[in-house]
Design a protein around this nucleic acid. Structure first.
Lengths: 214, 214
DNA sequence: TCAATAGTGTCTATGAGACACTATTAA
DNA sequence: TTAATAGTGTCTCATAGACACTATTGA
């Protein structure tokens, strides 16, 4: 990095004021048979449940800061943070001039085992009222995830392969927030899946084919 | 703003290193009968043609910084900047630790009259090779605009109302980058338009109805 | 056998593409 | 009248919804 840069006014880069930059992440998951849920962490300073986040370190990339915050604050090995939006309302954060870069990370429920005292998984519908405008971040994240799950099967790998068509549909229904027609769903998804050998354990009924993506 | 905040480590907000934050904007327009084009400004320091941008001022919102940069660098009264993405690759900008928040602004060609020495309008296809990764910003902007113009008529107000169906289709074709079927296009758009009294001046042919959005 | 779940066949309604046709103007 | 552009009618095809039907298991 160089400090020799001067702009048209002769000023160095460091002569300009700089904001604090935070990353805040909505980690979304779908517990088996459950609703779309989000990871919250307990803020040690405020005592509030909020989204995991951190300030970026010098020269650190945003995605790295996200992964670091998930590991540190929630003991979660995050996967592939996706950037959503920068929130820049000056009154959004009472700690000063803070830009918050919102992220989405989608993680299988099996990889999230919060201890409950520092981190917890809460249905999205029950998370309203978080500090620092974190409700907005969840809304952005849910919208993004819904769009992704409208077109293609389990784009973010919530299900372990291979999975049955019903398992896949249940996950899509949880994310979309509505019931889906089984046969229309099947026909839309089949061209994007490859069948494996039929297997199934629990209960009666014809054994379901298990599929892989692609 | 307060400096009394302390985090879990006892550090103040200002104890953390902070990046420079820039906004860079792809101002897109469609000249009458022309291709999708973007506004470039001449960098007084480097002598390169690039996208207009600036560093954010203290406490300033990103959209305000965008409008300020358009006014200062290109004499353009911008309209409604739309945030696209934060580019954070450390090697992206050789001036130091800079986050670039890319924006899109869509402006009618009539509102852009660059003098050519400081600013110019260039077809998007001819802009490859800009510094600081500005090509990526244009790609993001074009993708966003294409998505918007797939569904609804002139969502960003490039045409002055009222306009004919052919004028509308030409603008959508310029943005989408492909020819559109006149009758399919008409039927898709009609429900989102209201007709006014037919008028038309130039040339032969049946006078075209002029429409307004909504 | 019955209940339960998986999967298929097929009818219908809708919408896009294709394209021939009519309508209205300037020259 | 002719060229040019605007706009309509309608055929076909692909797809989604609806739903009845068959298939295969556990109990």
């Amino acid at each position: 990095m160089t400090n020799e840069y001067r702009d048209a006014d002769g000023k160095r880069l460091t002569d300009y004021p700089r904001p604090s930059v935070a990353v805040d992440t909505a980690v979304l998951t779908v517990p088996a048979g459950g609703p779309l849920s989000v990871l919250q962490v307990l803020d040690a300073v405020d005592g509030d449940w909020r989204l995991p986040g951190t300030f970026v370190h010098e020269g650190e990339q945003l995605a790295s800061a996200v992964l670091r915050s998930l590991s540190t604050k929630a003991g979660v090995t995050g996967l592939a943070p996706e950037q959503l939006h920068v929130f820049d309302d000056p009154s959004r954060d009472d700690r000063g001039w803070v830009l918050s870069v919102a992220h989405l990370d989608v993680v299988p429920a099996s990889a999230l085992e919060p201890d409950g005292s520092r981190a917890r998984i809460v249905p999205v519908a029950d998370t309203l009222g978080m500090v620092h405008g974190h409700d907005d971040i969840v809304a952005f994240a849910v919208a993004r995830l819904r769009a992704a799950y409208s077109d293609a099967p389990d784009t973010h790998g919530l299900l372990a392969e291979p999975f049955t068509m019903t398992e896949l549909r249940r996950v899509h229904e949880a994310i979309r927030g509505e019931a889906l027609l089984p046969d229309s769903f099947r026909r839309a998804m089949l061209p994007m899946l490859t069948a494996t050998e039929a297997k199934r354990a629990e209960g009666p009924g014809k054994p379901a084919t298990r599929y892989r993506r692609g």
